[in-house]
Design a protein around this nucleic acid. Structure first.
Lengths: 209, 209
DNA sequence: AACCCTATTGATCGAATGATCTATATCTTG
DNA sequence: CAAGATATAGATCATTCGATCAATAGGGTT
């Protein structure tokens, strides 16, 4: 009956009850993001509740089903992950192509080289989520394909880059995040230099200074 | 989220019973490989048994626990995935470096661009399996680090490639398999050309013809 | 054909899981 | 400060899960 001492279990001993519904819902979603990123989408609602310091039944006061929680996780994670002004900035030929690519991949890597994003994207991809295919298709048509045209335009001689070549550049960079957050092996603290060298190698092969 | 059973395969009336234990065990492991590759390591033993056309209890006649089945899956999938003679062939300087790298990545991609391998490797990586870290470490020390020395040796002028540069090359190639089997988006039927161009871009940036 | 070994099944157990429902207690309002 | 509204907790249900075990039946041997 009596509560166990809060020192043992909780890093957050203060159990504030009766939050405003908006705030509680937000707290659940944010907790669910890291929780499912940790253990995968098969994580148990009881474990999620325990991590949040609430009862399992409370979850179902805010979400009808577990699938609904995961939907909210998806929404929270995918939101604003692709900055809408990147296509414009990537094709702004008043700026050297190398500069454009470096700023894009620096910003983009800062956004996606994040534990939660990387793992939930991978979990949902493995689960066959349509969301991933849409995301990749969007990435291809809005970022990578325009980039291909920029390379063609910036090359001093006629070149014929393929989309696979752009995907190769892209994958080599993304792979840093995969190693770090999926396989959890050491990677450079700041991937900026590695990214810059990858971009330079890429441009160099098309004769772009 | 729910992985409905592929009822397409329901037309399997022939129930061959009483196999020799060796064969039955082999059949279970091979079935488990594709099963867990499909649905993830949280797949249920009853679903696995149904797919195999056997009873769930029979599984536990050959394996004491579900974890033991997964161990067998790991063993079956990881076995002979890294050809032991690659290190020697990669450092055989009587052959042009480009040729060595192309043959390696052609062979290696044929081995790993496989549905079961790719997905089980990713599932186990997400689950935090030590196996993945060991594999990547082995890949780094036995293949990629020697490759770095070969590049240094083959370059006409002094160059200073980093391990991150080699990982970038490697990741860009592996990413083809990730797109194909994890995200399940279209990729070239034969990745050989894309790989060749990636290797050529890489070598070109170090001045290696 | 009868026998025996054992591979396989079917029934079942206890724990865990998603979800429901009612009682409780906290905050706000008048 | 009393009272109503409702956020939260606790108990519980119906399945589902991994795992166990006694009963059954396939197939080689004699």
């Amino acid at each position: 009956m009596d509560q166990t001492s809060p020192d043992m279990t909780a890093a957050e001993p203060v159990e504030r009850r009766r939050l405003p519904p908006e705030e509680r819902r937000r707290q659940i979603v944010e907790g669910a993001v890291t929780f499912f990123a940790d253990v995968g989408l098969d994580g148990k609602t009881r474990d999620l509740a325990k991590r949040l310091g609430i009862t399992q039944s409370l979850l179902f006061n805010y979400f009808a089903t577990k699938a609904e929680i995961i939907e909210a996780v998806y929404a929270h994670v995918y939101i604003d992950r692709l900055s809408p002004d990147w296509p414009a900035r990537l094709t702004d030929r008043t700026v050297p192509l190398r500069t454009r690519m470096l700023t894009f991949y620096t910003e983009y890597s800062q956004l996606i080289f994040e534990y939660e994003w990387m793992r939930i994207f991978m979990f949902s991809g493995l689960a066959g989520a349509e969301l991933n295919r849409r995301y990749l298709h969007h990435m291809g048509s809005v970022i990578l394909h325009p980039l291909l045209e920029e390379i063609r335009a910036a090359a001093p001689q006629p070149v014929d880059p393929q989309m696979e070549d752009i995907w190769n550049l892209h994958g080599g960079i993304v792979y840093i995040g995969i190693r770090r957050h999926i396989y959890q092996v050491p990677t450079p603290d700041d991937p900026a230099q590695a990214i810059a060298r990858a971009v330079d190698r890429f441009l160099h092969s098309y004769g772009v200074a």
